[in-house]
Design a binder for these strands. Structure first.
Length: 267
DNA sequence: AGCGGAACCTGTCGGC
DNA sequence: TGCCGACAGGTTCCGC
């Protein structure tokens, strides 16, 4: 589900609500979501939430941090004491003000883990730079991709190359950059790497401004939808006219995942 | 090392 | 209407 803008939207929502709340009790409704021993964080407070790639980092008033990943369908919702459980609620944090922080996930791909804050660096050691990091530049991409034969679209989904891009924004970024998604990584020129970097930042910034994309079931913490779906130029628009040239948008499969493109604008 | 495919799990939608 | 396959915003593991 959620890519960088959606994860950041969730974090911004939670930062408004759960900071300084005490964790009174934790209930795990579905095993497999987490194998943590949560008893060691009872009585602790949420201090601050951060994002790294598509991971959510909950800093606590102890030396431990909770790391969450929403995968395809995970959500965090905060509700009052009296709201009943929903079918896909998986983990419930009972908070000091009697509200509940609920991790809900239809498909159960999502995951929560507990690690020492000193182990955060190690945890994210292999992950690529954030898109706005100055390390994410054309020399970096050229070096990392010089031996890669696979399509640039597939490469943009690799979190060890750059953090946070998923299936929707990969298509949108390459459309904006005017680059065909099937081009092998090693075949791109420096100017094309620069286009990708600029497009990545522009599109993610815009998506952040509109609280992410709601295609099916992404919701903000307050259960509102994101609005960036209204700005999508290729994703989900197969058969419709390209907004730039009028050509029909195509849908292709790459590595078992859908890619959308305009074969006239992207070369 | 790089690459493709399967697996994880549940729900929905479109075609026949 | 009902069944069945395809598909869904992600990541990891396995074998070549």
């Amino acid at each position: 589900m959620p890519e960088l803008p959606e994860v950041q939207t969730v974090i911004d929502g939670l930062n408004q609500i759960i900071i300084n709340q005490t964790i009174r009790k934790i209930k795990i409704l579905r095993k497999g979501i987490t194998s943590c021993n949560f008893s060691q964080i009872l009585g602790e407070k949420f201090l601050k939430l951060e994002r790294r790639g598509k991971y959510i980092i909950f800093h606590l008033s102890s030396e431990l941090v909770i790391i969450g990943h929403l995968k395809m369908t995970g959500k965090f919702v905060v509700t009052s004491k009296y709201v009943k459980y929903h079918p896909h609620d998986r983990v419930i944090f009972f908070l000091g003000d009697q509200s509940k922080l609920i991790f809900n996930d239809v498909r159960c791909f999502g995951h929560l883990e507990l690690i020492g804050s000193a182990d955060l660096l190690e945890k994210f050691k292999k992950m690529g730079p954030e898109p706005w990091d100055s390390k994410y530049n054309s020399q970096y991409l050229q070096k990392k991709l010089e031996n890669r034969k696979i399509p640039i679209k597939t490469l943009l989904l690799d979190q060890n190359l750059v953090a946070g891009i998923g299936n929707i924004y990969a298509s949108e970024i390459l459309f904006e950059a005017g680059i065909h998604p099937e081009k092998p990584g090693h075949s791109l020129m420096v100017s094309e790497f620069n286009q990708i970097i600029e497009s990545t930042r522009r599109i993610l910034n815009l998506a952040l401004k509109y609280n992410g994309t709601t295609i099916s079931d992404f919701r903000r913490v307050d259960e509102k939808t994101g609005e960036f779906q209204n700005f999508l130029k290729v994703y989900g628009r197969q058969g419709l006219a390209c907004r730039i040239c009028g050509e029909k948008i195509q849908k292709i499969k790459q590595n078992q995942r859908s890619t959308f493109l305009c074969s006239s604008c992207q070369t």
